[in-house]
């Protein structure tokens, strides 16, 4: 093997190691007692404990945060699917002179700085008496989910072979049943990827949740970040366990999302 290749392989292996090691180390720390974490030399051999994890799961604030995150993200994604997918299909299949502008408008929503949206919304929700409720969070997140799902679903629908849909029209299907029975199932794989992506995005969202909740509607990221503010006596093990809990749901989508990436680029090839 030439030395260049060897160096290249080493660099790659190191990058692969760097990609996962910090996270694995956090997972390992979540199984440690505080004495095993606060050491100058990192400890690999230790007596594992489940105390941190059971503490996290047993805490009301964490469970409420988990519940809030699941409801807020779940409902917002559902709204995103119901409103975003049909609109994306219409833009993809019935192009008119505004199609480009609509696409740009949807993308431009992503340019808006989150603070610029969160400050006025906080004032608005306060005036409506909806501040610190899940409803307010869901409505705010819907803006995100609808626009992201629409943006990703337009190319997914465009990739469906037109002939399939035209054949269905010839067979007497109406416009709506072509959408339901042909376009949706054929594009399903890419669409699931788009939906999963929007879920990960709102699950990971922090700033808006921080500004729109004070006690009742706190999502899991907010609860986790508050655990770290308990003075100098940081409960490292507990903190590590909460990071692990927070990170698990998005990682469940790893398979779906990498499949989505593959399908996007396979389409480009042909």
């Amino acid at each position: 093997m030439r030395p260049g290749r060897l160096i290249g392989k080493t660099v790659l292996a190191f990058a692969g190691f760097m990609a996962v090691f910090p996270l694995l180390w956090t997972a390992l720390n979540s199984l440690k007692n505080n004495v095993d974490i606060i050491t100058r030399v990192p400890r690999v051999v230790f007596t594992p404990t489940l105390a941190n994890i059971s503490y996290i799961i047993g805490r009301d604030s964490v469970m409420t945060g988990l519940y809030n995150s699941v409801i807020a993200c779940g409902v917002a994604v559902l709204i995103g699917v119901v409103l975003g997918l049909p609109a994306a299909y219409a833009v993809a299949r019935y192009p008119n002179r505004w199609a480009g502008d609509i696409q740009f408008f949807v993308l431009s929503l992503r340019f808006l700085p989150p603070v610029a949206v969160a400050i006025p919304l906080m004032v608005i929700w306060l005036q409506l008496g909806l501040y610190d409720t899940l409803a307010a969070l869901i409505v705010t997140y819907s803006l995100l989910t609808i626009s992201v799902i629409m943006w990703l679903a337009i190319p997914a629908f465009q990739a469906v072979p037109k002939e399939v849909e035209e054949a269905a029209f010839v067979d007497g299907y109406g416009a709506y049943s072509v959408f339901w029975r042909i376009a949706l199932p054929v594009a399903a794989r890419s669409l699931i990827g788009a939906v999963a992506f929007s879920f990960v995005l709102v699950w990971n969202e922090f700033l808006i949740a921080l500004m729109l909740s004070s006690s009742n509607a706190k999502t899991l990221p907010i609860v986790a970040s508050e655990l770290s503010q308990q003075g100098m006596n940081v409960p490292w093990g507990i903190l590590n366990a909460s990071v692990v809990l927070l990170s698990l749901p998005p990682l469940l989508f790893l398979g779906v999302l990498s499949g989505f990436l593959n399908s996007v680029f396979r389409q480009k090839k042909t």
Binding site: A19, P221, A224
Partner: peptide, 14 residues
Amino acid sequence: IIPVLLPRVSAAFV
């Protein structure tokens, strides 16, 4: 792909 899926809060803590 794993790091980008993590919540920013998690990545920041890690």
